[in-house]
Design a protein around this nucleic acid. Structure first.
Length: 873
RNA sequence: GGGGGCAUAGCUCAGUUGGUUAGAGCGCACGCUUCACAUGCGUGAGGUCACAGGUUCGAGCCCCGUUGUCCCCACCA
């Protein structure tokens, strides 16, 4: 038998184990169930954004689930989380390449999604490394295939279908425009901050009169584009003015005063200038009142040709000049300091401008409806289910989705324009105009929002729109694991896309986890610089430790803080497992390990096997419910407390003793439990369990493809296990007494015990003596036999007396007993009160009442014994 | 303004369909070089489960309200 290293050193085997799995294709997706149905889909290429803990969390949870399901024999497909939100990373890489001298042309317009296979060499190394360390599967070839040939095809197909159905339209909308990046931004890409500004009050003169109406604005330059002034319909101050016109100063345009409920009469002056082309609300007002929309700003943030003397000025310069001009005309009423929320570009932080623009939109209403229904009808389930509320809330209030982006990399919109005015949407680049036959076709300059392609991920990766074998077999997938922050962007969009294109929901379960925060509870972010690189943690503690620390003590959907001490605790546990395994193996030597059927089981054996069975049952149930935290906790408790602290210690007298048969029995149990434990733990800490497993004699199947332990009722000896707890209680009591009277642990004491279960005590005598630090245990019938100066304790299996001679302080002993009596009395009155309550007897379940009654009887017995003892002092 | 979360030991957090005396890790105290492990072993201290009410035989858990706190979205002329 090979010998294990004396210390747990993850570095010495993690890479080797990973390679071993890889070489045997345990990661590879296979459709034939008979092959290894361990499924793998590589995350999309912008996983460069994954180098933080949130993604380590994604990967770990997914991997735990897949390994568990795999060991249970299910064939499953999981979808790794993506980081499509990290456009910033993508942007940075592109910019970095450009700085290095790569030209736009060299980079090409196709960008990330379709060129991943080239970039993986340059940028993918670290990511692959990380995934690998986390024990996660990795299959770049498949990714290449997917991204290269399939993804762009799927994107075109999806766009084309929506277009055909009239669900895609090009329309004027107010969009967020970044004048620096010269791109439209989705609402998600705009960060709002509270900025100090001013509230300028301008007087607008009424047409044909000396009267004026005062409006307030935070963006004076937009007045050049005003096409109305609005007041609230019920605002008496202005009701007489509605329908009249004003002359817009500086411009001279005659514009109407309209009544609209959008206006808040209590805010500002109660009169609002309306600039439909540069404000989303004004845009809506403009639509309602059929107002002209005048664009006063260019794409670069300068004023447009519609602005007369202000044309060409930068927006801020124009603001100054407009205010000055109004002042000169005596129309500036006052300036108030006013802080307000201003949108900023999430990339360059420039102030965004809401502008009217031609963009591509997806009509959301028809898509949202089935997506809502699917969750209502439980076709897809959120776990925990409270996240369905977020999902519903979003879909029920959804607005049309602006999918065009003015980036020069990315997937281009599959629409071409002919000189004749024809607009052609096609799956593949058309060569001639179907209308005029012209060949001068120009593709739309805009790219698609990355989320458009991300939304196709569950099926584009399976070869859709082709009817591939993979698609037929794996779609819909089992489970998606992701953070709650991404529900609106990605989960929701995959849902409606899956239903729309593939005809079915993309996944049955959506397991939502919380965010990993830093030690102070802050979200890890690039700008704060508080992100922790999982690779560094792995380097320090090992991948298993990181994995285990991420899932223990974590409730589904709740945020968790990342601290070194958690990883340390996980590492300590693994070290414990390592050493316990080493102990078991060390004791096996060259002999053949018997199976459970071949040996005679002692009470301690039955106890640990029963404990193991409940652990198996609990862990299996928890994992099926995706309660990874609970499962991990149950397991670690079992391994550390029951197996290591008790059973291994209990086994020592047998292992070192002369009874060969007993020794053989214990070995059989030790190996059985260890083997089961390794399998149970494998989903959580795959490397170390696989490594230890390799040391077990006569092991043929690698752990990764072995079977998950099953609960076996025949191996659950409930009554005997409960009885055995009495031995543990006895040992604990002796230890506590010794500490209590300052008896040195090394000093052996003699024990006297009155008990009904003499056989159990006899069978475990040597273990009791060893664990309790006792020289002898004598079974007696009467306390008097224990002699004078004893400490007595009521224990589960009887009444214990420990003669401690001069160590016993009689007065102290009396106080201790009286206090114990007091506790018992209060317990008795509590339980007694319950039992004398007729309502409780009548309404509580039988079992609860019975338990309460037997507890009450035990308490009475205990009380009697304590009283007896006090009277003897 | 809309939606959601959280409040339990000194700290970080669990607590499953309501049912023994509410748990863990870390920290703390005391004691241990026991032949797998000091990344360890043993023993212990420490909680009015945010506040107020309700439902129930029974509430950390369910319902209503309050306070504090965090997040997401929208809006802020």
């Amino acid at each position: 038998m090979k010998e294990m290293q004396t210390t747990y050193d993850p570095k010495s085997f993690e890479d080797r184990i990973y390679d071993f799995w890889g070489k045997n294709h345990y990661f590879r997706a296979e459709i034939d169930k008979k092959k290894i149905p361990f499924t793998v889909m590589m995350p999309p290429p912008n996983i460069t954004g994954r180098l933080h803990m949130g993604h380590a969390m994604d990967e770990t949870m997914q991997d735990v689930i897949v390994r568990f399901k795999r060991m249970q024999g299910y064939c499953t497909l999981w979808l790794p989380g993506t980081d499509h939100a990290s456009l910033a990373t993508e942007h940075k890489i592109v910019e970095a390449l450009r700085k290095e001298g790569t030209s736009k042309e060299e980079l090409g317009r196709e960008g990330f999604l379709t060129r991943a296979w080239e970039w993986k060499e340059q940028y993918g190394g670290k990511i692959v490394e990380q995934l690998k360390k986390l024990g996660c599967s990795c299959d770049w070839d498949r990714l290449t295939f997917t991204m290269d040939e399939r993804c762009s095809k799927a994107v075109n197909e999806a766009f084309f279908r929506l277009y055909e159905k009239g669900l895609i339209y090009r329309g004027s909308r107010i969009i967020n425009w970044c004048p620096v990046c010269k791109t439209a931004l989705s609402d998600e890409e705009v960060t709002h901050t509270e900025d100090a500004g001013n509230f300028w009050h301008f007087a607008y003169p009424l047409e044909g009169s000396d009267e004026k109406i005062v409006i307030a604005t935070t963006r004076p330059e937009t007045m050049l584009g005003d096409t109305a002034v609005a007041v609230h319909p019920f605002d008496k101050r202005y009701s007489a003015l509605v329908g009249r016109k004003i002359i817009l100063p500086l411009v001279g345009r005659s514009i109407p005063i309209v009544a609209d409920e959008y206006v808040d009469p209590a805010f500002g002056t109660g009169a609002v200038k309306i600039t439909p082309a540069h404000d989303p609300n004004d845009f809506e007002v403009g639509l309602r009142h059929d107002l002209p929309m005048i664009k006063v700003m260019n794409d670069d943030g300068t004023m447009s040709e519609n602005c007369g003397e202000f044309a060409g000025l930068d927006r801020y310069e124009a603001r100054k000049r407009v205010v000055e001009a109004m002042k000169e005309r005596g129309l500036l009423v006052k300036i108030e300091p006013h802080s307000h929320n201003v949108g900023h570009c999430h990339r360059c932080n420039a102030t965004i401008e809401p502008v009217i623009s031609k963009q591509w939109f997806v009509k959301m209403q028809p898509l949202a409806k089935p997506a809502i229904d699917a969750v209502v009808k439980n076709k897809t389930k959120f776990i925990p289910d409270r996240f369905a509320k977020i999902y519903f809330n979003w879909l029920e209030n959804i607005r049309d989705w602006c999918i065009s982006r003015q980036l020069w990399w990315g997937h281009r919109i599959p629409v071409w324009y002919c000189d004749c005015g024809e607009v052609i949407c096609a799956r593949e680049t058309p060569s001639v105009c179907p209308k005029c036959g012209g060949t001068h076709l120009k593709q739309d300059e805009d790219c698609l929002d990355t989320w458009f392609s991300s939304a196709l991920w569950p099926f584009s990766t399976l070869g859709w729109p082709e009817k591939t074998e993979e698609f037929e077999y794996f779609y819909p997938t089992d489970v998606l694991v992701t953070g709650y922050d991404i529900i609106p962007f990605w989960v929701m969009r995959m849902m409606f896309s899956g239903i729309e294109y593939a005809g079915k929901v993309p996944f049955r379960d959506v397991l939502i986890h919380g965010l990993v925060r830093d030690e102070l509870g802050r979200k890890m972010s690039k700008s704060l610089g508080n992100g922790i690189d999982p690779l560094e943690v792995i380097d320090k503690y090992g991948a298993d430790s990181l994995r285990l620390s991420l899932v223990t003590g974590v409730a589904p959907g709740n945020d968790t803080r990342f601290t070194d001490t958690k990883v340390e605790a996980a590492r300590n546990f693994i070290n414990k497992l390592w050493n316990a395994s080493r102990f078991v193996l060390m004791n096996a030597k060259e002999e053949k390990i018997p199976s459970l059927e071949e040996v005679k089981l002692h009470p301690a054996d039955r106890w640990i096997i029963s404990k193991l069975m409940s652990a198996i049952r609990d862990v299996t149930i928890s994992l099926q419910k995706y309660e990874l935290g609970i499962a991990a906790e149950k397991l670690t408790d079992f391994v550390w407390d029951d197996f290591c602290d008790w059973y291994i210690e209990l086994s020592k007298p047998a292992l070192y003793g002369d009874d060969a048969e007993r020794r053989r029995g214990v070995l059989g149990v030790l190996f059985f439990v260890l083997d089961s434990v390794l399998k149970l733990l494998h989903p959580f800490i795959p490397y170390v369990t696989e490594e230890i497993h390799g040391f077990l004699p006569s092991v043929k199947t690698p752990l990764i493809v072995s079977e998950f332990p099953r609960y076996n009722a025949k191996l659950s000896y409930r009554r005997e296990a409960t009885a055995f707890e009495g031995i543990i209680d006895l040992v604990k009591t002796v230890r506590a007494v010794k500490v209590d009277v300052n008896c040195p642990p090394s000093k052996k004491v003699k024990l006297y015990l009155i008990t009904d279960n003499k056989r159990l005590v006899q069978l475990n005598k040597s273990a009791i003596l060893r664990l309790a630090g006792a020289s002898e245990i004598e079974l007696i019938e009467d306390g008097a036999e224990a002699g004078e100066k004893t400490v007595s304790k009521v224990v589960e299996i009887g009444h214990l007396f420990i003669p401690l001679g001069e160590l016993v302080d009689l007065e102290k002993e009396r106080v201790r007993l009286e206090k114990e009596l007091e506790n018992v009395m209060s317990e008795i009155s509590r339980a007694g009160g319950k039992l004398s309550n007729n309502n409780f007897i009548a309404k509580a379940p039988k079992k609860v009442v019975e338990d309460e009654r037997s507890k009450y009887e035990k308490l009475l017995d205990r009380k009697k014994k304590i009283e007896e003892q006090i009277s003897k002092l």
